[in-house]
Each structure stands twice: as structure tokens, then as C-alpha cells.
Amino acid sequence: MKYLAGAAILATVLIWPAAQEAMAQSPIPQNPKVKVDYLEPREPSPNDVKAMGIYKQHQAIYERMTKRGVLEELSRFLSPLQLPVALRIKTLECNTINAFYDPQEWTLKLCYEYFASLENNAPQTVDENGFTREQAVVGGFLAVTLHELGHAVSDVFNLPVMGREEDSADQIAAFVSLQFGPEVARTAISGAAHSWLSLHNRRGDVYPFWDSHSTDMQRVYNFLCIGYGGKPELFKDLVEKRWLPKARINTCSHEYERLRLAFRQTLLPHIDQDLMKRVQAEKWLRPEDGKW
């Protein structure tokens, strides 16, 4: 019995490093509770020239996303999330520039129209605020997807949202963006800021204060403040030199700490820590992302 135990320990000691190495090298699996689907854009009548132009852009986006495996990648990114229900993520045509979370179907509906809008409003290279095309396209995608995921986790985990649900989804998106290294953080926060700034510039000074969303500019400031609160050095150039007044800058660290506390108490218990470390160590963005 003693001999057997000794052999078992020896075997474990010998095998353990090899197993660890194999585990480290094995790809991060998709989250089995995250089901993804790309719905093909519908081809319009050839006589409808305007609709055909839109269709072609949507088709190109659809093909790029399927080829890149964006949603499968997203499922892998979400692998640490221990969901109690199956969450569906779909890309589809919606006939509106938007993205939604549908709580009846536990489904994220990401519209090709939204991604087309990100591309159409992105600078060719870099804009006057220093936002690059990659940040506008890839970061804009990350920001809206993480925002809708914020709604989803809020729903399925019954998060205590005592403030405003829409701001909560933005907070979750911004906070999560900061947990995967400087590249993801800078891309996603800048992408969010660019998206809302761009929308503000198109809509003008129209403020539907009755709405449950913050205004476009508030969302720019909120994303940048959380970014600066979590990683001051990474966002110093945007925040201190350009976007936020001192009175708000002074609160950003506190705002971030309050978010960290809320995340630790309400979302962390639903996250697999070992998988999380692997996801955090992975490089998620590729050099060619957004360069089209």
C-alpha cells in the first residue's frame, strides 16, 4: 500500500509538469453556454440600387466576420463566464443601426448596420482627436458588444442595478475592457469614445433627457473617466490634455474603485478564475483587425 502510494506520488510529480505544459498550450475553449450564429444578409431585388449597395456592404462584413471567426473568438473570450443559461450571440440585418440584448431569448443581436456605420464613420487613418481607424472599427465593435453583454450578465445574474441600467452596461463594458492588457484597453475605450463622439457630431446638440441612456457626450466622458481611473498612464494623453475637466478627473479613480468593488462582489463569483487568467494572458487583437 505504501509502495503504491509512493509510486502514485512519483508518477504525479513526473506527469504534472507535462500536463501543465499541455494545458498551457491547449487553446482556450469556447464557452459551451455561448452559442453563436451569423445570419446571412438577404439579397434585395437587383433593381433596388440603394438596397443593393447596402446589401453588398453587409455581405462583405458578414464574410469578414465569419472568416475571422469573430463570434467563435468572442465565445472563447467569454469561456470563464459560468452562465446559468445558454446565451446566444447573433450577427444579423436589423434594418436599423443598432445592437440589442433580447432578454426573452437571452440573445445578443448585433446588427450589420451598426458595424457598417462604424466603418463608414471611421477615419481613413487617424482623425483630429488621434483616434485611428482600427480603434474606431475594432474598438467600436468591442464597446458595443461588451455593452450588450453587460445587459446580458445583468439579466442572467440578476445584478443589483440601483442606478441606470444603460449606464451599468457601459460601466461593465468599460471595466471589462481594462482587464485584458493595454492594447485591448486602449482600443476598446478609444473605440467607445470615437463611436459616441461621432454620433454626437452627426446628431448635433439634441439631448433627449427623458431617455434612459446617457447623452452621447456623457458616454464619451464616462468611458474615458473609467479608462483613466483604471489605467491613468494609458489614458493620460486623452483625458488630461483634451477631454475631461479637472473636477471630473479627480473623481475617476474613485469611480473605478467603486466599479471594481461592484465587479468583485457581484460578477467575480460567476467567473472561473483559472480560465480567466488564461484569457487575460491571450493576445486577442491581430495586426490586420480593422484594416479594411
Binding site: M162, G163, E166, D167, Q171, R264, Q265, T266
Partner: peptide, 20 residues
Amino acid sequence: TFDILEIPVWGRDEYAADNA
């Protein structure tokens, strides 16, 4: 109170304080 009791708040503290 949010600060002292470390109450987790989503949706911005100011709005949550209004709502409370």
C-alpha cells in the same frame, strides 16, 4: 452609505443615490 458599507452599485453612484 454606499462607501461606508461597501455596497456594490451598478448604474453610477449618483443615479443610485437618487433612486435610493
